[in-house]
Amino acid sequence: MTPATTDIPAVELRGFGKSYRLGWSGGFIPAVQALSLRLAPGQVLGLLGPNGSGKSTTLKALAGLIAPSAGHSLIMGHAAGTDAARALVGYLPESACFAPHQTGREYLRYCAGLSLLPADKAAPRVEAVLASAGLGSVADRKMATYSKGMLQRLGLAQAIVHEPAVVLLDEPVSGLDPEGRLALVKLIRDLAAQGRTVVFSSHLLAQAEEICDRIAILGQGRLLAEGTPAELLGPDRRSAAGPSALEKLYLEKLRG
């Protein structure tokens, strides 16, 4: 295992591009173009952008589910998708629906086993993530009976059960009620406090502004703005009424 060192970025995209083929007729549609980002270990990056801006594609490339058409995607210096990189990554797909007949505990044990957690470490680790996700009391219930919020928290739990250095979350708070959203935001904050690098995509600007060390705004597959909230928004980040500074910047960048 490569130790996390400060000079190796936890997450790096170098001129990353991804195009999808348009059926048999040929032709490609670019989903992401020339995206370059570096994220130090322990930072939280929020990928913001409208539907189709390339957020999920970027996360999938970092998770190793798709290969770049151009450039490189790296996790702790390892090419995304390699054994070494995948051992360092936890991933929550958008709207994941797990085996409904299984209990939450059974599913997390399965995930821990796939990540090769030693048996003596897996059981306490599963209990710990169940507790941190607030699912301890429902851990033995079938997942078919879980609410959307519970499933999202279980999704996050499976992404961190093996204690990955980098956690990738695709729209983790979408479709959640305010209570569920707050619980998930707290979990992301806790991960950052533990020194894990978190990259998540979201439409919710206020929460991104609150929990991110860095923010990247994507539009039509291109990076429109990137930096710390302070760099992007200046010292006067919140106005008393109306849209926040991040909302203003977001709309301004998307409208060109």
Binding site: K60, L65, R86, V89, G90, L92, P93, C97, L114
Partner: peptide, 9 residues
């Protein structure tokens, strides 16, 4: 669910 499996080692 396949994403949760194939992003592991």
């Amino acid at each position: 669910a396949i994403g949760c499996v194939l992003t592991r080692p």
